[in-house]
């Protein structure tokens, strides 16, 4: 990372912030009204069976707020509680929020930070993810946008990754990882030869924010900075179009082309090479500005085919 920075504002790390701190920094000051907040004490009814402590908001903060004056519904997962994983209450809060957004004709912003399904309530979590996907599609076919923001500790794994793939637009930072099977899951099931989960550089080349941005898996790449996420959210919320069959036909072509073009690549760096990045090996070490300049002309854009 380059030390040269001319910014006068103090950078606040999105990665280090809690879910509540992220919401406070993302949304217009004082505009957030929480639904089913901690005082409602809607905790998981299942964790006690496993002698695990509950959290009053079950690891997700939901409500309505303004984003540069525009009313939105927002949800933030707390990646430090149970890895931000989806349980029954956690998931149902997001389902309810998305249904409420549809009823109120509002866009939604999702601050995803999740390891996937909470295994202690796996069936309820899995089903909640399916309900969330359906609610997102309902909202989007009705002409509203769902913006995903990914750059937290837990990344965006399992069903969370599939939810990300259903958003209108995705904003990601370098620490943000998006995948279905996480590194440990691949290694456990297929062996260390298939994937060495301890190899952090490999993890980032395969599912990290830069790789996703380069291949069209994310639309916007930002610094690990709450102010950068806010600016990107405002920019990406404007002017989106509804999810239609034509959008999906374009996505079909886009994903098919990705397989055709990069399907034989064994490593992220080979994909970047094929894209025409001048010096692929230097990509992981670039700061945000260098990176955006180096890849702007060659990256695959999703062009709203998502």
């Amino acid at each position: 990372m380059s030390q040269a920075t001319t910014k006068t504002q103090r950078r606040v790390s999105w990665f280090e912030a809690t879910a509540r701190q992220r919401l406070a920094a993302l949304l217009d000051p004082g505009s957030f009204t929480e639904f089913l907040g901690p005082a409602a004490r809607e905790i998981s009814p299942h964790l006690a069976l496993f002698s695990l402590p509950a959290q009053f908001d079950d690891g997700i903060v939901i409500g309505k707020a303004k984003l540069r004056g525009h009313e939105v519904f927002a949800a933030a997962q707390e990646g430090r509680f149970m890895g931000g994983a989806f349980g029954e209450v956690h998931g149902a809060k997001l389902v309810g929020l998305l249904r409420a957004a549809k009823a109120a004709s509002r866009d939604a912003v999702l601050l995803l930070d999740t390891g996937g399904v909470r295994l202690q309530e796996a069936n309820a979590g899995e089903l909640a993810i399916s309900e969330i996907i359906r609610a997102i599609v309902d909202l989007r076919t009705g002409g509203h946008s769902v913006i995903g923001l990914i750059g937290g500790r837990a990344g965006c794994f399992g069903g969370g990754g599939i939810i990300a793939g259903c958003c209108t637009r995705l904003i990601v930072s370098e620490p943000g990882r998006i995948s279905v099977s996480g590194p440990e899951v691949i290694e456990t099931n297929r062996g260390v030869e298939e994937f060495d989960s301890q190899d952090r550089a490999l993890v980032w080349r395969t599912m990290g924010g830069k790789h996703r941005y380069l291949t069209g898996g994310a639309d916007c790449f930002v610094d690990d900075d709450t102010a950068a996420f806010r600016a990107a959210a405002i920019e990406n919320l404007a002017g989106r179009t509804p999810l239609t069959v034509s959008v999906l036909e374009a996505e079909q072509a886009r994903l098919k082309a990705r397989l055709r073009r990069f399907g034989t690549a064994k490593d992220g760096s080979e994909v970047w090479q094929a894209l025409g990045v001048t010096n692929p090996a230097s990509v992981p070490g670039m700061d945000t500005e260098e990176f955006l300049n180096a890849v702007r002309a060659v990256r695959e854009s999703a062009d709203d085919a998502r």
Partner: peptide, 25 residues
């Protein structure tokens, strides 16, 4: 889902999301 380096490198999350969206649409 197929758990592999290849599938995740290609962005399996987008492919599975795409299939789900197609069925829902």
């Amino acid at each position: 889902q197929h758990m592999s380096r290849h599938d995740e490198l290609m962005g399996l999350n987008e492919f599975l999301a795409h299939l789900a969206k197609c069925l829902l649409l």
